[in-house]
Simulated assay, not measured.
Amino acid sequence: MSKPEKGEVAYRVVLVVEDEFLIAMELESALTHGGFRVLGPASSVNQALDLLAKQRPDAAVLDVTLGHEKVTPVAQLLTSWDVPFILATASDAAELARHDVLAKVLNLGKPTDMKRLVEVVRSL
């Protein structure tokens, strides 16, 4: 991340959507230590949409399967806003291909390499 100009905020906001508590905390910790401010973590589509109604993030990290629902409504909103996002999911390529909004998105997989995650989010 480049040094902010005078009056600019020194961090970017990253939405985290992950329903597994320990993984969500690990993502939040890695991103926070990487210099980002985390919005969430949200554990459901509704929770994520509620957060997005209040604040527009600079980027997002999404799990695909949240309990019995898919994260696609969140991905569609982010796409409509031109907010870049990556996936951190155990879903395979065939599953992701079923959802146009997810089909070509980088998936870091699970378990997620947290150092790579921070590097990729910085590059978004």
Score class of each variant (00 low, 15 high):
Gly35Trp: 11
Phe36His: 10
Phe36Gly: 08
Arg37Cys: 04
Leu39Asn: 01
Gly40Asp: 04
Gly40Ser: 06
Gly40Trp: 04
Gly40Met: 06
Ala42Gln: 00
Ala42Leu: 03
Ala42Ser: 10
Ser43Thr: 10
Val45Ala: 05
Val45Gln: 02
Val45Cys: 07
Asn46Ser: 15
Asn46Gln: 13
Asn46Ile: 01
Asn46Arg: 14
Gln47Ile: 00
Ala48Glu: 01
Leu49Pro: 01
Asp50Asn: 13
Asp50Ala: 14
Asp50His: 12
Leu51Val: 04
Leu51Arg: 07
Leu51Tyr: 12
Leu52Gly: 01
Leu52Asn: 00
Ala53Cys: 09
Ala53Thr: 11
Gln55Tyr: 08
Arg56His: 13
Pro57Asn: 11
Asp58Asn: 14
Asp58Phe: 03
Val61Arg: 04
Asp63Ser: 00
Val64Met: 07
Val64Thr: 11
Gly67Trp: 03
Gly67Val: 07
His68Asn: 15
His68Ser: 15
Glu69Val: 06
Glu69Gly: 05
Lys70Thr: 15
Lys70Pro: 00
Val71Met: 04
Thr72Cys: 10
Val74Glu: 01
Ala75Cys: 10
Leu77His: 09
Leu77Thr: 08
Leu77Cys: 01
Leu78Val: 01
Thr79Asp: 11
Thr79Val: 00
Ser80Tyr: 02
Ser80Gln: 14
Asp82Met: 10
Asp82Gln: 15
Val83Phe: 10
Val83Ala: 11
Pro84Phe: 07
Pro84Ser: 08
Pro84Leu: 11
Phe85Val: 04
Phe85Trp: 02
Ile86Phe: 04
Leu87Cys: 11
Leu87Asn: 08
Leu87Lys: 07
Thr89Gln: 04
Thr89Cys: 05
Ala90Asn: 09
Ser91Gly: 02
Ser91Arg: 08
Asp92Val: 05
Asp92Leu: 06
Ala93Lys: 15
Ala94Pro: 00
Ala94Val: 13
